[in-house]
Design a protein around this nucleic acid. Structure first.
Lengths: 117, 117
DNA sequence: CGATTTTACAACCATATGGTTGTAGGTTAT
DNA sequence: ATAACCTACAACCATATGGTTGTAAAATCG
């Protein structure tokens, strides 16, 4: 049985929500490739550094990136685990759809068989 | 080259945003399995029917479900295409991460080779 | 026909979101 | 040392979100 604790659902909410903004998706892209400082990220987008900082915080809360300080810089690194969870969730939904498709195909072949009798 | 039109990005925003709410994810689950009327969905959750209607609208805008009228009922059906797009986007991100991992492993094996010399 | 079901939609409300500017405190470089 | 750089955070603002209740109009049932 699939367990859906409220806590787990909220975590999933945060992951999908974090990915629902193009700037944040790009930050994930950049930081999965290699670590970037917050100010480096700030130079990539036409918004204030504060806005970028907030986007990074949303991603940290969703565990899609992690931060660690190095001198005066805060380095951001993309993390894979929650992406995998989201991936699995989508897999589950697609499996449901395939099951529906198969039932539909069964009915169709039944009908075809009867028609050819 | 990956083309990122603003229109496409907004579409992606809507898909991930629609999936960032547990009730909406459940509606997708239910309607991928089989069609459900809006009122039928309304009975599944501890919120008003109006709230459920709004959730369905968000999902329709994201093209994660479609609606068609049958008599007085509005039937909702889960759609697979946008789920697949989201799936592919996650695949792309995971591929980036794997590339980073491989570069890291290369450096590591270089180091190991030198150490054993 | 009259009652019930199902949907639609407006109006309202509290809170969240995504952006801004301004202030300030560490860290590094010249 | 002092200037430049990087980050943190408060305060503010407009709009979006997720919920509510209430009203009303089709469609179906008995």
């Amino acid at each position: 049985m699939v367990v859906k604790s409220r806590e787990r659902e909220k975590k999933t909410d945060r992951v999908f929500f974090a990915l629902s903004d193009a700037t944040r998706r790009d930050i994930v892209t950049q930081t999965l490739d290699r670590e970037r400082s917050v100010s480096e990220l700030g130079r990539l987008y036409p918004i204030s550094l504060t806005a970028v900082q907030k986007h990074v915080e949303v991603l940290v809360d969703a565990r899609l990136v992690s931060k660690h300080r190095s001198g005066r810089e805060q380095l951001v690194r993309g993390e894979i685990e929650q992406l995998r969870r989201a991936h699995q969730l989508l897999d589950g939904l697609e499996a449901l759809w395939r099951a529906r498709l198969e039932r539909f195909e069964d009915v169709l072949s039944e009908t075809t068989r009867r028609e050819s009798e």
